[in-house]
Amino acid sequence: CHSECLGNCSQPDDPTKCVACRNFYLDGRCVETCPPPYYHFQDWRCVNFSFCQDLHHKCKNSRRQGCHQYVIHNNKCIPECPSGYTMNSSNLLCTPCLGPCPKVCHLLEGEKTIDSVTSAQELRGCTVINGSLIINIRGGNNLAAELEANLGLIEEISGYLKIRRSYALVSLSFFRKLRLIRGETLEIGNYSFYALDNQNLRQLWDWSKHNLTITQGKLFFHYNPKLCLSEIHKMEEVSGTKGRQERNDIALKTNGDQASCENELLKFSYIRTSFDKILLRWEPYWPPDFRDLLGFMLFYKEAPYQNVTEFDGQDACGSNSWTVVDIDPPLRSNDPKSQNHPGWLMRGLKPWTQYAIFVKTLVTFSDERRTYGAKSDIIYVQTDATNPSVPLDPISVSNSSSQIILKWKPPSDPNGNITHYLVFWERQAEDSELFELDYCLKGLKLPSRTWSPPFESEDSQKHNQSEYEDSAGECCSCPKTDSQILKELEESSFRKTFEDYLHNVVFVPRKT
């Protein structure tokens, strides 16, 4: 048989008469490798580009789960590009990614509803959504962080984005990388972005840091009482949809009607710091009717980097990364020049730590249904340095008659930039024990000054392991946590139920 035959053949030295091919099969003959313009397919066939392209389009058009959109890589027609490569849609070739590779997620039936953290986790790592997304989240724990972890990498949506009755959302900033909504599939009414009845939605994105392009379709905003109209108009300008909307697409009466839409800028007039305090004062603000001013709200939190936005980490279910302080308005003076500047002394802060701070007014709604208010920009203030805590785990070892090696770990709280350490030492008198000992005694162990690591005695271990207080009263049991108490109650309830079950099964009433 021919060298490319495997198993047997019907005619000697003829690659077209093989029972099976050793390498690849091409047009009725066995070959060692697939010549151009053919590609290896499933490690035994040679196919042309049209064959591989037909497989790709067949799966793409069917949208069946589990099928493969075949691509070409290293002269092979394979189910998908290997790690580190992405497909070129024009020629199906796998090309190296520039940075992290995109991950295209194809949605069944063309859309997916995100109504819980669990459903959001199914899209973790996706960068391109081939379909439409509907966000409908009523509640949950730590929602802002969970949504950002699972949806934060999405850069492109081919269909539309719909935010509907998501009472738990305060902001859409968890879509931190969303840059493009194509609108290839539109919501009824030709809408590519749809926001309806979101009672706590206050911000779409921080438009000073976020760009969003909507290729096709219109915007729809109705019944978002805490979303200011200025935020919607800003989205029109940034996304390129200005002029597409009709009169009733953006409701003037049901958007922002319960919001404090600040239209003035508060400026800080005085800032002073110490290692654990920050004193702030800002310019006074009074609405047209000074009785509408209820006070100020001061927001602050630790910020290692200057990239904080107002609604980071917030949701309507209680999660809030900001510390909020309510401040009463100052006494009002008739003389504008003698107006008191409101302020606040922030206490209990960490030394040498940068804080993000902003302040906003708290006002009631005027009778004319106009909203007044003022808010400052987010500023960054760093507390002063102070003395560091003591170095940890000092170790001293003498390696000769004239040297001592000293080692330690950095302090747990540096409280500033540590530039150097101060080492103090003092000579001590020799131990009298060394002169009084009889060095001729056998088995004498000389006193040693070398360091030995501390260890816990058996008594201390027994005390720590004991669940009861000892007789001397030195140790006591740790208080039980809520989960331990709940577990004990469940076990007790189970024992009672099981005992009742045994009584009912074992003891049967005697027939009379």
Rank of each mutant, 00 (worst) to 15 (best):
Glu146Arg: 15
Tyr167Met: 15
Asp393Cys: 14
Val104Glu: 13
Glu262Trp: 06
Ser401Ala: 12
Trp282Tyr: 01
Asn211Thr: 10
Asp312Asn: 08
Thr241Gly: 15
Leu280Tyr: 01
Phe268Val: 08
Arg247Tyr: 10
Pro287His: 14
Asn255Gln: 09
Ile357Ala: 06
Thr386Gly: 04
Arg370Trp: 09
Asp289Met: 07
Leu345Ile: 15
Leu204Ile: 10
Ser274Trp: 03
Ser402Pro: 03
Ser366His: 15
Asn211Ser: 09
Lys301Ala: 05
Ser338Leu: 10
Gly313Lys: 15
Ala120Met: 06
Ser321Val: 14
Asn190Val: 14
Asn190Lys: 15
Asp315Ile: 03
Gln306Ser: 14
Pro388Glu: 01
Ser158Phe: 10
His341Cys: 07
Thr127Phe: 03
Leu178Ser: 01
Pro351Ala: 11
His341Ser: 09
Leu169Lys: 01
Gly159Cys: 03
Gln382Ala: 11
Asp257Tyr: 12
Lys234Ile: 07
Ser400Gly: 07
Ile154Tyr: 00
Pro225Gly: 15
Gln339Cys: 12
Arg124Leu: 07
Asp312Thr: 14
Asp335Ile: 14
Thr213Ser: 08
Arg370Met: 07
Ile134Phe: 14
Ala251Tyr: 14
Leu201Cys: 05
Thr254Gln: 13
Cys261Arg: 05
Leu151Gly: 00
Leu123Lys: 00
Thr353Gln: 10
Leu204Gln: 02
Ile129Leu: 11
Glu155Asp: 07
Gln245Tyr: 12
Thr254Cys: 14
Leu392Ser: 13
Tyr380Gly: 01
Trp207Leu: 06
Asp292Val: 03
Ala168Val: 09
Arg182Ile: 13
Asp289Phe: 03
Thr353Ser: 13
Asp384Leu: 15
Gln258Thr: 13
Lys301Pro: 00
Arg124His: 15
Leu133Ser: 00
His341Glu: 05
Tyr191Glu: 10
Ile188His: 10
Ile404Leu: 02
Asp115Pro: 06
Asn307Asp: 15
Lys253Tyr: 09
Glu283Val: 13
Glu246Pro: 13
Asp326Lys: 03
Pro225His: 04
Leu123Arg: 01
Ser116Asn: 04
Gly318Val: 03
Thr273Cys: 13
Glu302Ala: 07
Phe174Tyr: 09
Ser333Asn: 03
Gly189Lys: 02
Ala374Pro: 15
Leu219Thr: 07
Lys409Arg: 14
Arg244Asn: 06
Trp282Val: 04
Glu236Gly: 04
Tyr160Arg: 05
Gln403Thr: 06
Leu362His: 15
Gln199Glu: 13
Lys301Phe: 04
Glu237Gln: 13
Ser269Lys: 12
Ser402Asn: 14
Ile157Trp: 01
Leu293Ala: 08
Ala374Phe: 09
Leu123Ala: 12
Asp276Gly: 05
Tyr305Met: 14
Gly140Phe: 03
Ala120His: 09
Leu227Ile: 09
Ala385Val: 08
Cys105Arg: 00
Gln245Ile: 13
Asp289Arg: 08
His222Ser: 06
Thr241Cys: 15
Glu156Lys: 07
Val324Leu: 07
Glu109Leu: 07
Gln216Lys: 00
Glu368Phe: 03
Asn150Val: 05
Gln382Ser: 12
Arg332Thr: 12
Val390Met: 07
Asp312His: 06
Asp292Thr: 14
Pro391Asn: 01
Val363Arg: 08
Lys350Leu: 10
Ser119Asp: 12
Asp292Gly: 09
Asn399Met: 04
Ile135Glu: 01
Gln403Arg: 13
His341Met: 07
Ser400Lys: 09
Thr309His: 09
Ser230Tyr: 03
Glu262Met: 11
Thr127Ile: 10
Pro304Leu: 06
Asn340Val: 09
Val128Trp: 15
Cys105Leu: 01
Leu294Ala: 05
Lys209Met: 09
Glu109Ile: 04
Glu122Tyr: 12
Lys103Arg: 12
Asp206Pro: 09
His233Asp: 13
Met297Val: 04
Arg179Gln: 10
His341Leu: 07
Gly131Lys: 00
Ile357His: 00
Pro287Thr: 09
Cys317Trp: 03
Arg176Ser: 08
Ser260Tyr: 09
Asn340Ala: 09
Leu345Arg: 01
Ser158Pro: 00
Thr213Asp: 12
Glu187Ala: 01
Asn200Leu: 06
Arg179Ala: 09
Gly318Pro: 06
Gly313Asn: 13
Thr383Ala: 02
Ile395His: 13
Ala259Tyr: 02
Pro388Ile: 01
Thr371Met: 11
Ser158Val: 11
Glu109Gly: 14
Ser376Asn: 01
Asn211Ala: 10
Ile378Ser: 01
Gly240Trp: 15
Gly243Arg: 04
His210Thr: 00
Asp335Gly: 02
Lys218Pro: 10
Ala259His: 15
Glu264Gly: 08
Phe358Tyr: 03
Gly189Phe: 07
Asp292Ala: 06
Lys337Gly: 09
Gly189Ala: 07
Gly189Trp: 03
Phe221Trp: 03
Arg247Asp: 07
Lys350Ser: 11
Gly131Asp: 01
Asn211Glu: 09
Leu252Phe: 11
Asp289His: 13
Arg176Cys: 06
Met346Glu: 06
Met346Arg: 02
Ser166Tyr: 03
Thr213Arg: 13
Ser402His: 04
Pro388Ala: 01
Asp257His: 08
Tyr223Leu: 11
Lys337Asp: 15
Ala149Val: 09
Val397Gly: 12
Glu187Thr: 07
Glu109Lys: 15
Lys209Phe: 11
Glu237Ala: 08
Ser166Leu: 12
Ser400Met: 04
Thr353Lys: 11
Leu178Lys: 00
Lys242Ser: 05
Asp206Gln: 09
Leu147Arg: 00
Leu294Gly: 15
Thr127Glu: 01
